[in-house]
Design a protein around this nucleic acid. Structure first.
Lengths: 340, 340
DNA sequence: TTCAGGACTTGACACGTTTTAACCGGGAGG
DNA sequence: CCTCCCGGTTAAAACGTGTCAAGTCCTGAA
């Protein structure tokens, strides 16, 4: 007979209706949701029942508007086509999902402009924190977020500011490992194939390569840079080297290495007999390539997990949180492409 | 001397302050943001200047609370470790980023429980729509979202309800292509390696394989199922086949195929001379594998883009939108692993 | 019997934006 | 001269939740 007196117009049920249905006030429902310990067992179970019966789901917009902070974080990677970054993303997503956070995924596609656009969007979305693999060392595009109280953790990039967390892998050491290994196999004329040197990883691995040469006291390094770090670009880099083949090629990336390998094999260059080849990242597919690829392994998935945990710690307990710059050591993985 | 009369306490500047700074009312600022055509040119430029000067960024929570809908969509994939899904995600992210939407990324990791948890979270986040590759054909877990007015597009899965968009690739046809090709090369005793048959793709490709056998009038199909669709699982599947080797192996997935290939080569089985091998998806790395892998190509990136565009159309113009079930045809890619 | 104090609960307001109806001054039409 | 309409703008009322001061009820000690 009586029309149900819904507190809200639309079809969605809100906290008010739950309250009415359970015979308590909206404030109590909110307490059940956010500080369950403050409400008596009896009332709590009653409210929880009402929530289930009415199929209530919390309105995140209202919640984060009022509370000033929501349960979303942003993740910005350089290239979604690179398994390195998707493994990272997997680590991040796993942790965030466990802890009830939503991950907003952005790809800057190595474009500073797109990075900036995405960061602005993340700011609008009121994210609680961001995980970023920055495009360059250039202007501090994170300022926009920082002044709005958004925490940031640098991913695979050293902290650019004093009070900031970062999780990285020692790329200088990685480059050194790779080239020292090439020198060990007897190579002397070595080529380094990389993306733009503006990308820190490319520059650091290069520095490591030089250090290895210096320590060995012999060997030379040629340098080929290409626009992006994809198999296709690797192929093109290899063509440039065909005129005068080096003894060994160190690629800044397994994707590049796969392209190089393909071009070499197509031209009948024997790997590793004529040219030795080593990549970087040790992506899963490197094992399965035509000539199993030597590489430098990074704890990628774990990198993502740890960065995510660091960010959450910083968000949920800002006082007790000490900023950390964590650096992992990479590991040399020797396979057939550098066999003696 | 006079303290600035900020409308808002915190450090963040809101619509009110912009209004004060530009000498208009908050409502006008809102109009500049949402219906610029309704405000006089002079006022608009004045407001825009104020926005720039004060570094105002819109509070998405408040906006979507009041407007009832935000600018975020959810993307749920089965497995972030699989290049097929990350290519999909790339397509989706590219479109959404262009159009100013945020993408919340979720991985169900083929777990129904996790799928449900993530869908609930997406509902809380007030997403405007979702793109889903569902875990199974089971209970309609999207109901929760639908009754809250959230649009859904099925990704790589046929629509499960009448009024729903979907973007798929014809997996039956793909399975048929693959096996017909294997029969062409002379193979008769064929093995199909797949993940759980609860996964539609695995089942459909199997159906296609059977159809090819039927049409040819000869050949037999053995079936090995494994728990997940990873290289490791493929390796294990291959071990099961080592006792009595088939003439050819059709894998439901390139990842599986790479694992199978690796196991076969390790055991000294020659591919394609002794056993022919074909995968599915034609992921980029399949080309670069030890024996370049024949595969069935899907327009993966485009799938993501089109699904995203469909979803946006449905969200932004619900009346003019006609639900579509788009099905692409896959394409056979022949490489060395099935050479005669 | 009274009162202090604790354990819960309540009610009203605030968060920053969108939206609606009302308002304004002035030119056109009656 | 009055009315109506016009583009442009404004003031005020929502949207659904979190917070906190102010209650209410109950127990146990004085």
């Amino acid at each position: 007979m009586s029309t149900p007196q819904t507190g809200t117009r639309g079809g969605t049920v809100g906290i008010k209706e739950v309250a009415a249905h359970a015979g308590v006030s909206p404030g109590t429902v909110s307490n059940v949701l956010n500080r369950p310990e403050r409400v008596a067992d009896a009332t709590r179970t009653r409210v929880e029942a009402a929530i289930r019966e009415l199929g209530f789901v919390r309105n995140g917009s209202a919640s984060s508007l009022r509370a000033g902070q929501g349960r979303t974080v942003g993740l910005m990677v350089l290239d979604l086509g690179n398994p390195f970054f998707t493994d990272l993303a997997r680590g991040v997503e796993d942790v965030m999902s466990e802890r009830g956070y939503a991950v907003i995924l952005c790809s800057s596609a190595t474009s500073a402009e797109r990075e900036e656009r995405n960061l602005r969007m993340l700011a609008e979305q009121q994210v609680r924190g961001v995980l970023v693999t920055p495009v360059d060392q250039g202007p501090d595009r994170l300022a926009l977020l920082r002044e709005r109280g958004v925490n940031a953790v640098m991913l695979d990039h050293p902290a650019t500011r004093p009070h900031q967390c970062s999780v990285t892998v020692d790329d200088v050491s990685g480059g050194q490992l790779a080239v020292a290994h090439l020198l060990d196999t007897g190579a002397r004329d070595i080529a380094y194939v990389s993306g733009p040197m503006g990308i820190r990883q490319c520059a650091d691995r290069h520095a490591g390569a030089l250090r290895a040469l210096e320590q060995a006291g012999h060997g030379t390094l040629r340098h080929v840079t290409v626009g992006e770090m994809t198999p296709r670009a690797g192929q093109e880099a290899a063509w440039q080297l065909l005129g005068e083949l080096p003894d060994a090629i160190f690629c800044a990336n397994d994707l590049l290495a796969m392209g190089v390998l393909r071009a070499l094999l197509q031209q009948g260059v024997r790997v590793p007999d004529r040219v030795k080849l080593i990549g970087y990242d040790d992506i899963e597919y490197a094992t399965a390539s035509a000539i199993p690829l030597s590489s430098v392994r990074q704890p990628t998935y774990r990198l993502g997990r740890i960065a995510a945990e660091l960010l959450l710690e910083e968000c949920e307990d800002p006082e007790g949180h000490a900023h950390q710059q964590i650096m992992f050591q990479p590991e040399l993985v020797i396979r057939e492409s550098t066999a003696p």
